[in-house]
Structure formats: structure tokens, C-alpha cells
Design a protein around this nucleic acid. Structure first.
Lengths: 248, 248
DNA sequence: GAGTGGTCTAGACCACGGT
DNA sequence: CCGTGGTCTAGACCACTCC
């Protein structure tokens, strides 16, 4: 295999070789050539395939490892990251209990309802689809220490998940579901946080009072190529919890 | 100069050479040998000084650049990052307006009061000092689009800032103040977010109503060695703003 | 032109994991 | 034992910046 190198006469749009290698390898993930959990070829083998040095391949692999796309294990090889890896799991779950003496487990969720509906303007904008285009909407509740404290509304374009209605149940970790059933890898996400007051739905679902402060988390999850896949709005009672951020 | 290499007979506690180099270079920052804005020696020069190869120095410098401690400029050299670098400025300010058509400027702050007080138990725990030990407490208000929306309470151990009371005024960017007057570099921080209700102080300060939801941000800022320097509690009206997080 | 960081290569030795 | 990734080295060429 040969990498398409740019015209050496011009340096505009120049991309370093290791970046081109990385793009090639990400393409193998996007196309499903490399599946989660797979042992990918060794650095030496990839270097031969791509006609570059081992050091250049290493730089690409290191970058992908830093983005949680790969897992490297000395003596064994390099593997495609799996959504159930605990590290990945907590990559997208920043809410923890204030009292961290107990290491907080990943909270189980209880399904409230799920149905296909026409998308709202907000969903359409977030998911880059037409307004009114069908979306699956999933409502869940999460418990921490036996108390229901988080409501979660997931919206995802129906065309993204063909055959979704044939599912018998929805697992706790939907990112693993996207991966195993539709080959979609959630690679990154952005979240916007606000403080809001609880509404009647929150009260009915969580058993709290109205007018209680809640943390609203609006997440857009994206695939390997940066396309929006899922909109998730979580509303959380933060009396005994907080959202933790590390800078950098 | 010679690096202290570990006993080659044992591999427990082994630290790669580039990590030892990084530690050495960070020490130069901690000790003030390298001041913010300074042009540090070239890779070749550092390699000679430390008796390692240029590649090893590069790996250490790249890591420090990734942590925003250094800034590299091709053809010019490597420089110690300055607190007023716009990149660094926004590293610690995640609040932005919902309407991002206008690129949000760093909001100016208005000083309410500052005084030295005995530390509360909370401050003492956050700053790793004895309860009741004196702290400077600074209260400010930040405006966005002409509206007061953020109250900010900064607590910092008095012993950290000798001669603080001789200051005539407190600048908007206190991290730059810490750096220029006391040689303290804020290198990282962790934040915990909660939703709360506005209290009477908030109302008096921001002119909002009581019982309005607010985003509470509790930040502990740390120096190069990870020691807590400053506790900052911000309370923000998030009607027209949000806290933005990117994962990873 | 001299010096800097940015990229790319080639080869060495090591620790680790499995055979 | 072999193959893997992890580290370290040495040297080449390039683009950028300043003189």
C-alpha cells in the first residue's frame, strides 16, 4: 500500500506523514476493517504496509491511543478500544457522589419509555437532520445510592439505527449497543451545562419537589468522523452529587 | 550536568529518561530559574547540558508543551508560557454565552471587597491549611453583555501571598498577579459543579430574584507541583450562558 | 546564512507476554 | 525463545525566523 503524498512543490495544505498514517488507520476503524477488541498489526507490519518507518507509525498510534481509540499493551500488541472498557466508560460520565470514600460505580438506569417521534427543531439542529425527521427518543432514570437523581432523554436519528424497533431491550451502556449493532463508535462529545429548576416531569419521575435546582447537561456525542450521532439531555439533582472537571 | 539514573539492577520505581528530564526542567520553572516569557535553551543545548540525546529532550519538551507550560515556535525557539496568553486564559474559563455568534470576550470583573479573615473548615480543607489560619478573601462580580451574572469568591492562604495587603488594586487576571508578584504558576485546576438556588447575597449583588437556579463552580487551582493555591467559588446565572466541556 | 523547531528515518537495547 | 511495544540514540532534511 502506498500513501498519497502531496505535491512536493507546494506546501499549502501540507500534512505530516504521521497524520496521513493516522487518517489511514482511522479509516480502517470507520470502515469496520478493524473491529473493537481486535489485535491490530504490529508497528513493523504497518510500517511495511504503508511504506513508512516504524517511528512514523508509532507517532500515529500514540496519537490514536491518546484519543482512546486504541489500547497498547507491552509484549502483547495494540488493540482497538472497546466501549465497555472502564476507562472509556467514565470518559463520558463526569457525575460522581460528593462522598467519594466509596468508589462510585457506574449507575444503573431504568427505562421509562422509548418511541419514535418527529424531531423537534432543537434535536434536528443538534443532529444535523431535517426538522420533523423521525428520531428515537429514549427516557431513562438513573439511581445513585438507591435514590433516583438523574433523568436522561436520548434522541437519535431513526435513519442512524435501522432495525432499532426490533430490539427487545435497551442495555445500560447504549454506546456499546451502537458499536455492536451498527458499528458506530462514539469517539468524542461536547457538553453544555446550565442550572435550571425542576419541572413537573422531574418531580413525577424523581419524586422531588418543584422549584428545586437541577443541573442540566446537554451532550452531543459524535462518531469517529465528528458527525453528531446522539443528543442526550440529563437533568440531575446535585444535592449529594457533583459534576467533576479537570483542567487541563 | 548529570541526571541521577536509577540503579540499573532494579526496575522497581524505574522512570524513563525523558520523564526525569521533564522533572528537571519543571524544577527550573518552580525555582524561577526560567521566568514566564523567557526563551529557554535550544533542544541541542539542553541535550548537551543533561547528557541525553536531542530526541529525549524533545519528548520532555513536547509533554510540557501539551500541559501548557511551554510554547514552541518554529524557527524562534521554546518559551515559558505566560498567564496572559489567550490560550491559557481560556484554559480556566469555560463559561460562554449561549449565542456564540459574537466571540465572547474575557469578562471584566468588578471588585466588591477584599479582606483577611480566619479560614473556614471548608477553605482550610481545600487549601491544606489549618482551620482558622488567615486567608485573603476576595469578592468580585463579572459582567457579560452588560449584565452582572457571576459572583466570585476567591480564598487564598495569607502565608502564600506575603505583602498582599500592600497592593493598591487587584487586576482582572489574578493568575498573572500570582505569577508576577509571587512567582506562583497556576498549572492546573479541578472544578466541581452543582446546581443551587440564589440566596439573598446573590440577589443583592446581581439584582436577581431569590429562588432562581444558579450554577455553582468550586475550583481548586494548583501550582506546578500540584499544591492547592486558591479556592474559587463562582455562582453563575445561566439564563444566557453555559459551561462548556469537551470530551475527551 | 545561521540557528531553531518539525519531520522522518534507521537501528539499538530493554521489559513484557506468550510459546 | 520469539515477537511485541517502550525507550533511547544518531543523523538527515525541511520550513521558519532573524540578522
Amino acid at each position: 500500500m502506498e500513501l498519497a503524498l502531496q505535491d512536493s512543490e507546494t506546501h499549502i495544505g501540507f500534512k505530516p506523514l504521521y497524520a496521513q498514517v493516522k487518517d489511514q488507520l482511522i479509516r480502517r476503524l470507520v470502515d469496520g476493517v478493524w473491529q473493537p477488541g481486535m489485535n491490530i498489526p504490529s508497528e513493523q507490519e504497518l510500517a511495511r504496509q504503508l511504506n513508512v518507518s516504524q517511528g512514523t507509525v508509532r507517532k500515529a498510534l500514540d496519537a490514536m491511543t491518546a484519543e482512546n481509540l486504541l489500547v497498547r499493551r507491552q509484549g502483547r500488541g495494540t488493540f482497538v478500544a472497546e466501549p465497555e472498557d472502564s476507562r472509556i466508560l467514565f470518559q463520558f460520565f463526569k457525575l460522581t457522589t460528593d462522598n467519594k470514600t466509596q468508589d462510585s460505580a457506574f449507575p444503573e438506569s431504568r427505562l421509562l419509555c422509548w418511541s419514535q417521534e418527529p424531531s423537534t427543531a432543537d434535536e434536528a439542529q443538534a443532529l444535523s437532520i431535517d426538522k420533523g425527521a423521525p428520531v428515537w427518543r429514549i427516557e431513562r432514570v438513573r439511581q445513585v445510592d438507591g435514590k433516583s437523581v438523574i433523568t436522561e432523554t436520548i434522541s437519535i436519528a431513526a435513519k442512524t439505527l435501522p432495525g432499532f424497533d426490533a430490539l427487545k431491550e435497551i442495555p445500560n451502556n447504549v454506546y456499546q449497543l451502537y458499536s455492536s449493532n451498527w458499528g458506530i463508535t462514539i469517539a468524542k462529545a461536547d457538553e453544555k451545562l446550565k442550572a435550571v429548576l425542576s419541572n413537573e416531569r422531574d418531580c413525577a419521575t424523581l419524586g422531588c419537589e418543584t422549584g428545586v435546582p437541577m443541573l442540566l447537561i446537554r451532550r452531543i456525542a459524535r462518531d469517529l468522523e465528528g458527525n453528531p450521532v446522539e443528543l442526550r439531555c440529563s437533568r440531575c439533582l446535585t444535592d449529594d452529587m457533583h459534576y467533576a472537571v479537570n483542567l487541563p
